[in-house]
Design a protein around this nucleic acid. Structure first.
Length: 490
RNA sequence: GGGCCCGUAGCUCAGCUCGGUAGAGCAUCUGGCUUUUAACCAGGUGGUCGUGGGUUCGAUUCCCACUGGGCCCGCCA
């Protein structure tokens, strides 16, 4: 049903004429956009383009085919009189969705449309499927994600989205490289998970006696061991996995780049992030201001700095740096936070969301967190209730998280012991005790700044998307029973 | 985990309120047309109406359950 008999007949017809519908290669000389952008240079010259036939308008002895390559579309103008015998057979057996090669002369049609006047037509891949209609295309969200290949054909802006995402990733790499960072790869499959609070995915390694292993929730502790070893500056493009619900800004697997720099503190990274984002936006969009969902976001440095514990105290009268246990319940009720287990961490976090998150449309450093929110962070100089940590927000989304890393091994052990107690009390997000990391840090870790830079969320901002799924090529989907028609049978 | 909305042809949708086994446009097929671009003109093909159950003489339509998706809320980045 999904496969069109007429297309199978075309394959037969082509083969009968000695034309292979699935050949090996084709010499492409240029792309659609290049021709259109530099038309006067190309006009009258011969080119070879290749791409998918997206529209086909036939009128007797002349056919117009809109050929789409990765740069865009260009019309090919095909007069039967200009074609050799083979090309005529290809044309007779061509349909929308086929991948074609067109060799011809760059020209304009009578109506002025920039075109390739075909001299030779080559079948590069005969489609068996029918493309979505040319007006509405493919808009059903589920169909778009499940069939991203069709989505890309029909909605070329999707490809642009992923190009921008890729550019941002390269930009971050370039900057970290230029600082002397060594790109490393650490285990995704881990014995123990840590470096964050989250439920892990588990798996089994059969040859190690069916040992239980975890997909990493963070690569932090491994990167710190490299710092302890003397690498000084290391980063990793890290796909992390957290076994939690997805929503518009969370996906169970997501990408962040973590970077550690010895002898620096979190102030260093505020400057770095300002440079990184502003230079990217300027380079990519030609301006420091971009539109996001009808709002203008201005990346001109310096970014706003929100000392949020102070600001929260001013607005709500609550000082989260020192909440007593008795206050937690009272605040949860008075502020209508609706927390089932109002511990200090969640109360403070909820108060931030309630009062301050809405103020972080523009790039904003939210800085200095209560120490109890930061088990891997050094206390703030001059205020032992706070820790030297910032989160960078853009468009009300957290896009980076940075600490002056905790390097005191005895204090670190204490923080781990506390986490272990939370874990035993039933907090299934608290990571397990990691003696290996503790023994590493006991060798002595230099003063170090660390940062995790989200890739997904900045990509959303730069491409004006409100769902993280739009910047992830293949978002996870529940499985559906395979229908027999899609199995490739006639 | 809770609430709301949705699933009909390859795609985009109508029909359901008020039950009588389906309709449009595009795609596809046949014919016509040598400058179209949502080409046009004429004719045709194409659907176990998400799945299962119930009510009914009869269900795409009403009811229930399940399933897949979207949005919002709660939680992690």
């Amino acid at each position: 049903m999904a496969i069109d008999n007429a297309k199978l007949e075309s394959i037969e017809a082509l083969r009968k004429a000695g034309i292979e519908p699935y050949p090996y290669s084709y010499h492409v000389t240029t792309h659609a956009k290049e021709i259109k952008d530099n038309f006067s240079e190309f006009e009258g010259k011969e080119v070879s383009i290749a791409g998918r036939a997206m529209q086909l308008r036939q009128m007797g002895g002349i056919t117009f085919i809109d050929v789409q390559d990765r740069s865009g579309k260009i019309q090919s103008l095909i007069r039967n009189n200009d074609l050799d015998q083979k090309s005529l057979i290809v044309l007779a057996n061509a349909s929308i969705g086929d991948t074609l090669g067109v060799r011809g002369i760059v020209m304009k049609s009578k109506r002025g449309e920039m075109s390739v006047g075909a001299r030779e037509l080559t079948m590069l891949s005969k489609t068996l499927r029918t493309l979505p209609n040319k007006w509405q295309g493919l808009t059903d969200t589920e169909a778009r994600y499940r069939s991203r290949h069709v989505d890309l054909m029909m909605n070329q802006e999707v490809l642009r989205t992923f190009e921008i995402r890729a550019k941002f990733m390269h930009h971050v790499r370039d900057i970290l490289d230029s600082r002397g960072g060594i790109e490393v790869e650490t285990p995704i499959l881990q014995d123990l998970y840590g470096g964050a609070s989250a439920k892990p995915f588990t798996t089994t390694y059969h040859t190690l006696d069916d040992k239980q292993m975890f997909l990493r929730i963070s690569d932090e502790l491994y990167l710190k061991r490299l710092i302890i070893g003397g690498a000084e500056r290391v980063y990793e493009v890290s796909k992390d996995f957290r076994n939690e619900d997805a929503d518009s800004v969370h996906n169970p697997e997501f990408t962040q780049i973590e970077y550690y720099e010895a002898y620096s503190d979190y102030e260093t990274f505020m400057k770095m992030m300002e440079d990184m984002l502003s230079s990217f936006v300027l380079k990519t969009f030609g301006s420091l201001k971009i539109d996001y969902q009808g709002e203008t976001i201005d990346f001109t440095p310096p970014f706003a700095r929100m000392y949020w514990v102070d600001e929260l105290k001013n607005i709500s009268g609550i000082d989260v740096s020192s909440i007593s246990d008795e206050d937690l319940k009272r605040i949860n009720e008075a502020e209508k936070l609706g927390l089932k287990h109002p511990d200090r961490y969640h109360v403070a976090d909820s108060l931030f969301d309630k009062y301050l998150k809405g103020k972080t449309l523009q790039p904003t450093f939210v800085l200095d967190f209560p120490t109890y929110m930061c088990p891997l962070t050094k206390a703030k100089r001059g205020n032992s209730m706070l820790a030297e940590r910032f989160e960078l927000y853009v468009a009300k989304m957290e896009v980076a998280n940075s600490y002056s890393e905790l390097t005191d091994p005895l204090y670190q052990r204490k923080m781990f012991e506390e986490q272990e107690r939370e874990r035993k009390k039933g907090d299934d997000e608290a990571p397990p005790f990691d003696e290996e990391f503790l023994s590493a840090i006991e060798y002595g870790m230099p003063p170090t700044a660390g940062i995790g830079i989200s890739i997904d969320r900045p990509a959303m901002v730069f491409t004006n998307q409100t769902s993280i799924k739009e910047v992830i090529l293949f978002p996870p989907m529940k499985s559906i029973p395979l229908d027999e028609d899609s199995s490739g049978k006639k």
